[in-house]
């Protein structure tokens, strides 16, 4: 624990004492000025919770990139070899980015309270799990984008898969049907009878599907926690199912963290000199 704390303290101090740190603080102030301009009318609590929650996720992504870039310097080789496990090093990077994000998020949250919404005790109880889960997921996802953790083509696989899932959950039956019909025409022109028949059957199935979009609903399940959190915040109270959403986001974060730890523990370190 002492090793992780020492490294975390070093990275936090390193960021806040650098130009990057000043840039991050300025970016947070600009964000506050745009989304919580004190001159405009008082935002409601749902807006406050959602916008600052999203800010936390986005900021965690960028802060993690900054921390990982600082941890990826050859001058730190002598440090990393002293650790019993490399994962401690990655954990320190992750913790430092969460601490910095929390500070920036708190800064925006406090500033936004001037001429801001009246938060009830229920809101105050809802905020930590929602904001923390979004920030943690943002930070872990960002780890996979950094040179520190990336191993071979892992960055392409992770973000490629994410792009495919995002695309798949947004497609509609009509889009799918037109794609299948196009493929059907190609198969027909090439004389691939069996493929042609299968595609034709599938197009009919999609057409008779009573607008039930199986693909988008399947992939949409992955993004359900985000929708559940937004619905819960907007409606003012979480249903028992919606209350699980932050926990599911943390589950995603855990899986991604374990994957990142596995990549980092087994890769050849090539820190920048």
């Amino acid at each position: 624990m002492q090793r992780i704390l020492t490294l975390t303290f070093y990275f936090v101090k390193n960021i806040f004492r650098s130009l990057t740190g000043i840039g991050l603080v300025l970016a947070s102030l600009v964000f506050w000025a745009i989304f919580f301009n004190p001159g405009q009318k008082t935002p409601d609590a749902a807006y406050y919770m959602l916008v600052i929650g999203c800010f936390g996720a986005g900021m965690a992504f960028f802060v993690t990139l900054a921390c990982a870039s600082r941890a990826n310097h050859a001058e730190l080789y002598p440090w990393i070899i002293r650790l019993p496990s490399r994962v401690e090093y990655m954990t320190a990077v992750f913790c430092s980015s969460l601490i910095i994000t929390a500070v920036l998020q708190l800064l925006v949250a406090i500033l936004a309270l001037f001429n801001g919404p009246q938060l009830t005790a229920v809101h105050l109880l809802e905020i930590p799990p929602v904001w923390a889960s979004l920030a943690i997921l943002g930070a872990v996802l960002s780890l996979h984008a950094t040179d520190l953790v990336v191993s071979g083509w892992s960055r392409v696989y992770i973000f490629g898969l994410l792009a495919i899932v995002l695309f798949a959950q947004s497609i509609h039956n009509t889009t799918m049907r037109s794609m299948v019909v196009s493929l059907n025409r190609v198969a027909s022109s090439q004389g691939w009878t069996s493929v042609n028949e299968a595609l034709a059957d599938y197009a009919i199935y999609l057409n008779d599907g009573d607008n039930v979009n199986i693909i988008s609903r399947f992939f949409g399940l992955i993004f359900w926690p985000f929708k559940a959190i937004a619905d819960g915040i907007v409606s003012g109270s979480f249903t028992p199912a919606q209350a699980l959403a932050p926990a599911i986001l943390l589950l995603y974060a855990t899986i991604l963290f374990m994957l990142a730890a596995d990549f980092f523990a087994s890769k050849d370190l090539t820190f920048t000199e």
């Binding site: 704390l5 310097h73 730190l76 080789y77 002598p78 002293r82």
Partner: peptide
């Protein structure tokens, strides 16, 4: 293991004692 690389790469922004104290914390 204690390792000193062939390059003279060190965190230039730290004072000597701060650097060594960090190494001690990691150890």
């Amino acid at each position: 293991i204690g390792y000193k690389s062939d390059r003279l790469l060190l965190p230039n922004h730290l004072k000597i004692h701060q650097y060594l104290e960090t190494v001690a914390g990691i150890s």
